[in-house]
Amino acid sequence: MTGCTDPTILNLWFAIGAEQETTPCIVSDTVLLEEDLSFTLDRVGQPLVWRRDARWPAGSVIDTSDVSVTLPVKQAYGYIWTCLGQPSADIFPIEEYDEPDRRNLNAASIGVNVSGPRAIENFLDMGHFPYVHTDILGVQPHTEVKEYDVEISESRDEIVATRCRFFQPMASTASTGGADVEYVYRVPHPYCSVLYKSSGQNPQRMDVIALFLQPVNQERVRAHMLLSMLDEANDERVMRRFQQTIFGQDKPILENQYPKKLPLDPRAETPIRADKSAVAYRRWLSSKGVTYGVIPAAN
């Protein structure tokens, strides 16, 4: 496989690791868009990312001032982000993250053998809840995906799906029973999605679950999951277990998708009404000219 030559993708910010899982001044290795990278935090917790260098192998102690050539870097939502091209100024906003009563945590970073766009599309899909997340996010016979709205926000250049409702037996760790749960989905980045769902603790507000995909190559990602929850009752390990249980159920479904790259030709796979957000996502990727992790439509 050759490296990424897709300028749209090369210029994006990507999360590559959780700050909490990164030991300051110890080198961690990772791969982004087929490029071997290393990263760490310095003594005061500032991240730095560089192209892998034999002088500083993974696990070694490093004096961060020795690394003179580094890649662009940002800290956002508990993760270290970098960019291999010319980055835009900002990473997309998740305003709720800064609300003082939220529990923000890195649920896990999990390797999945699938393209990023396939994983985003599964994240947007409600139709699989009763079958894949049985008795948690869905249960038969409540299988209907009710009509919902999808739009591409011109001002923010992102896809927004609203008025999504689904009956869920156990929507989160704070749930006390089955409920009709409202969802809002955002796709503010070709490889990231943010979902909002009615909070089990306070139905007037919404929990936030974000998926930041780090493409290792066109058919493999590291899936970083952020939780920003309203949940005073449960400790972090319980919230993490819930999210990992859900993601672990999705994993074999994702890995068995064929082809692993997402086809953008509207005739390649037949959508149904429930796939409205997926259709919008595929069109949006096409309009951006994305070629990495997808099978572009023939003109």
Binding site: Q20, A108, R237, R240, R241
Partner: peptide, 10 residues
């Protein structure tokens, strides 16, 4: 008793 095996290495 849930143990945070990953990523917490509990």
């Amino acid at each position: 008793v849930p143990v945070d095996f990953y990523p917490g290495r509990e």
